[in-house]
Design a binder for these strands. Structure first.
Length: 857
DNA sequence: ACCGCCGGGTGCC
DNA sequence: ACCGCCGGGTGCC
């Protein structure tokens, strides 16, 4: 799945050519510039002092070079470590003097391989490779020259042919006879798809029944998944890329060897498509495989003749003090779905202890957690607890098993959630995700690291052995990635087959576009707003201040989109585009309004610093929105003259404004019902369709979806008038109310609601609304992926009918233009994988063209 | 001999 | 380290 949003700050950020401001991309100092690094050349040096250290190395083994500025004998010292992190020696001091400056200023990354690593007593040679950005090459060569060193040019055919430079440590192969050809985008893409293709075959087709305590019959593909997961937890196979040699174990990527058998990953990635039952399979795993393939011992509930229920206690443990509890971490949006599914799938005769570690009353006592069978929590709680160092109960428990649901949540290695997840303790580690490799190999690292797959927990080894070979197209790189992924991942798509039959027989899904024509009056209002907005945006273009007025432009587009739905949505027409001399109070209010605008415009804003969705948004005086912790860190690290990462304007903590509200953001802040209710063309079109539907199939249920919750409110009126029983689900509702709404709607009882008013982003992926077989999408989303996700809430396992989706699109409006760009984005996304970033000017031009196209400029 | 040469002591950063 | 380097002992043929 891809993020299609074209108004994302990260695009702006690259469009401005600011990638190399360390304060932006490199907050923690760990981010490597991997995409644009080139090999400057190589240099032979020596490692000395071997006899003082225990780290040993093999011939051609990769080594890590690590600065050691606190060394009391030489502040230029550079340590040499083996893959395991054990020190082998130091770089000889003259060479270290040359390297220190280069490494400290991050002008280049220096990597080593020891060609004759074995059996040295005092010193050994080391072959060093220098990697960096093109523009730093001269500086690096100069620095080396000053100390009397000169790089040998990269060996011939370095980009694709010779393996030892970037990929596997050795031995050095002769250059191939034929020139290497770079894979095209399409080829690369299809290579990538192949990563998962063979997963369906080989040894993953064994089936296994769930334990007696699993109350639901598993489908064949779920039994396969269960068998695979159980075997992953119990097997003693070597992890990928390790071989057993006479009396030691050998890693064929790094040439590292050790006597201790490397632990296999007792887990992996379950990457089935949404709707195939990852949750159920995981529940089955927990119940079925406690120790040595024996089921989780739980209490049996018995009813005696007096109809009183008692719980028959059982011997709780097979062995004395092993860990018992499974921890499940998921996004808040699917927490209740987990609880539901436990209720649904655990056999009613058994009692399983489930503790939901959420809310302010959560127990701070680790032993309360470790006594459970299952502990459920969210990524936010996990990260918050981890933040208060040392006192996180979750991190003090040794878990039997850790499951990360929606595992792509941890794809950013610098995010607190990721760090918190990586530091959980437990041998069996699982990641559930529908999107294992989004559009880059980079995203995979956090997952692999979480799984504790040696030696990839250290980013350097991941980068040198997998990521760089793949992105540079080095021979064998993709194959290596493929065998890695294959060995730890199970993935089936909705179209995968089991024994010749589709794994899921989903009914058809049709998308219809229903054009709507505005009435004369509506058209007038729309045109005048469009004229006003167009004039303003034209002015921004001619002034060259498009970026500075980003929020205003989004605002114009938002108002036009609202007018397509209903005139009452667009009431805050404070068309105050220029207002410089304001009181602080006015300024504050303006900023808050603009931030709300950006957040509510559905443009899927990301924080330009962490590139994640905005969690605690703050707005700068220059009207750019970031996560609070991110922008604070920028200010801290750049003080005293911090600049906005997006526009380089002055940045000050005291100028930042936080988002004040807790309730759902909806900029159409409807001046509640003080206006008389009236209909609109879109509402008419919807009601017409609903009444027709009721006439033809009275039992059919449908979702009415909009991004504007006030629009949903306006729709309630005619629904009541026409006698529809309906319910509603939006982001502002409390958890309990949501659950009620969903249960009520899913019920098949006579008189249960046939219509659900649904806000586009309510719920999240776990939301199951299969009772509906019709969807009416009232307004197009910026991001077509968000639409698809919404459709999948009813077009999923359990859907009995064909699903028909109707998108209402106003003729000759911004909505039509949005659709055009959506289609273009879809096409682009389908073909684009791991391509070179388009140049800054290209991105900028595209964006400008899109703004123009949206408002017919 | 303010040299050469010898041979013992010694050894990362 | 079966090296280099240091510094003390030593000194025609």
């Amino acid at each position: 799945e891809r993020n299609y949003s074209w108004f994302s700050s990260s695009d702006f950020y690259s469009s401005l050519g600011l990638e190399d401001f360390p304060s932006v991309g490199d907050i923690s100092g760990t981010d490597e510039d991997t995409e644009s690094a080139i090999l400057y050349g190589t240099l032979r040096g020596s490692v000395v002092g071997l006899r003082y250290y225990t780290g040993i190395v093999n011939n051609n083994e990769m080594v890590a070079l690590q600065r050691e500025p606190s060394n009391p004998y030489d502040k230029n010292a550079v340590r040499v470590n083996n893959v395991n992190g054990d020190q082998v020696g130091h770089i000889k001091k003259e060479l270290a003097a040359a390297l220190a400056g280069i490494m400290d200023s991050k002008l280049a990354v220096v990597e080593g391989v020891v060609p004759y690593g074995a059996k040295n007593v005092f010193t050994m040679p080391v072959q060093m490779s220098f990697w960096g950005r093109e523009e730093n090459r001269e500086a690096v060569l100069d620095q080396l020259k000053k100390h009397g060193f000169k790089l040998a040019p990269p060996p011939k055919g370095n980009r694709f042919g010779s393996k030892w430079i970037s990929g596997r440590a050795g031995p050095s192969y002769s250059a191939p006879v034929h020139a290497a050809v770079q894979l095209t985008t399409e080829q690369l893409k299809s290579e990538f798809d192949k990563l998962f293709e063979d997963l369906k075959e080989d040894d993953k087709t064994c089936e296994m029944e769930g334990a007696e305590t699993v109350g639901t019959l598993l489908l064949p593909h779920q039994k396969q998944a269960l068998a695979w997961m159980v075997s992953r937890e119990n097997s003693n196979d070597l992890p990928p890329f390790w071989e057993e040699r006479s009396n030691f174990y050998y890693n064929i990527l790094t040439n590292f060897a050790e006597e201790k058998r490397p632990e296999n990953v007792r887990g992996g990635i379950l990457a089935d498509d949404m709707g195939l039952g990852k949750t159920l399979t995981t529940i089955a795993l927990i119940l079925t495989n406690f120790q040595d393939g024996k089921p989780l011992p739980v209490e049996r509930i018995t009813n005696d003749k007096f109809c009183t229920t008692s719980i028959q206690s059982v011997e709780k443990k097979y062995s004395d003090d092993g860990p018992r509890a499974t921890l499940i971490v998921c996004p808040l949006s699917v927490l209740s779905s987990w609880i539901d599914q436990f209720e649904q799938h655990i056999h009613q005769d058994f009692h399983v202890n489930i503790y939901v570690y959420y809310g302010s009353d959560r127990s701070k006592d680790p032993s309360v957690l470790s006594e459970q069978d299952i502990v459920l929590t969210t990524y936010n709680i996990l990260a918050t607890d981890y933040g208060m160092r040392g006192d996180s109960p979750l991190h003090r428990v040794k878990w039997l098993r850790i499951v990360l649901d929606e595992g792509h949540t941890i794809r950013n290695p610098n995010a607190q959630q990721t760090k918190a997840a990586l530091n959980l303790e437990g041998h069996r580690r699982w990641v559930l995700t529908g999107t294992p490799i989004q559009n880059s190999v980079k995203d995979l690292w956090s997952l692999i690291s979480f799984l504790k797959l040696k030696p990839f927990t250290d980013r350097e080894w991941w980068h040198r052995t997998i990521q760089r070979p793949v992105t540079m197209g080095t021979a064998g790189g993709l194959g290596r990635l493929q065998s890695l992924v294959r060995s730890i991942t199970l993935r089936r798509t909705k179209t995968s087959k089991v024994k010749g039959k589709p794994v899921l027989e989903l009914p058809e899904r049709k998308v219809l576009i229903q054009h709507v024509t505005l009435t004369e009056e509506e058209r007038q209002v729309y045109q005048s707003m469009k004229k006003e907005g167009k004039a303003a945006i034209s002015r921004f273009f001619s002034e060259g201040t498009v970026l500075a007025h980003y929020a205003d432009i989004l605002g114009v587009l938002l108002r036009l989109r609202q007018l397509c739905c209903h005139p009452h949505l667009c009431v805050n027409t404070s068309s105050s585009f220029s207002a410089d001399n304001k009181t602080p109070e006015e300024l504050h209010e303006t900023l808050v309004n603009k931030m709300k605008l950006v957040l509510s415009s559905g443009s899927d804003e990301e924080c330009a610093v962490c590139l994640e969705s905005l969690t605690v948004p703050v707005i700068t005086r220059c009207v750019h929105v970031f996560c609070k912790p991110c922008i604070f860190e920028v200010i801290r690290s750049e003080q005293p003259n911090a600049k906005c990462p997006l526009c380089r304007n002055e940045l000050r903590v005291e100028h930042l404004v936080e988002c004040p509200l807790e309730e759902e953001i909806d900029s159409s802040n409807g001046k509640k019902s003080d206006q008389e209710w009236m209909s609109s063309s879109k509402i008419n079109a919807l009601m017409h369709a609903l009444i027709e539907l009721r006439r033809d199939s009275p039992n059919a249920k449908c979702l009415v979806v909009s991004q504007f919750t006030t629009f949903l409110s306006l729709i309630e009126n005619p629904l009541k008038e026409s006698g529809f029983a309906f319910t509603r689900l939006d982001g502002s509702m409390a958890q309990k109310k949501r659950v009620e709404a969903i249960q009520c709607f899913q019920s098949s009882q006579a008189g249960s609601p046939t219509v659900m008013l649904l806000s586009l982003k309510a719920g999240g992926v776990g939301l199951n609304l299969t009772a509906a077989s019709r969807v009416f999408l009232m307004d197009p989303a910026w991001n077509p992926a968000a639409e698809d996700q919404c459709f999948d809430r009813c077009h999923r396992l359990g859907q009995k009918h064909d699903v028909v989706i109707t998108k209402f699109i106003v003729k000759d409006s911004v909505e039509e233009n949005m659709m055009k760009i959506q289609n273009k984005k879809r096409e682009l996304a389908a073909g684009a994988f791991a391509t070179k970033k388009p140049s800054a000017s290209e991105v900028k031009q595209t964006k400008i063209n899109e703004i123009k196209a949206l408002i017919d400029l």
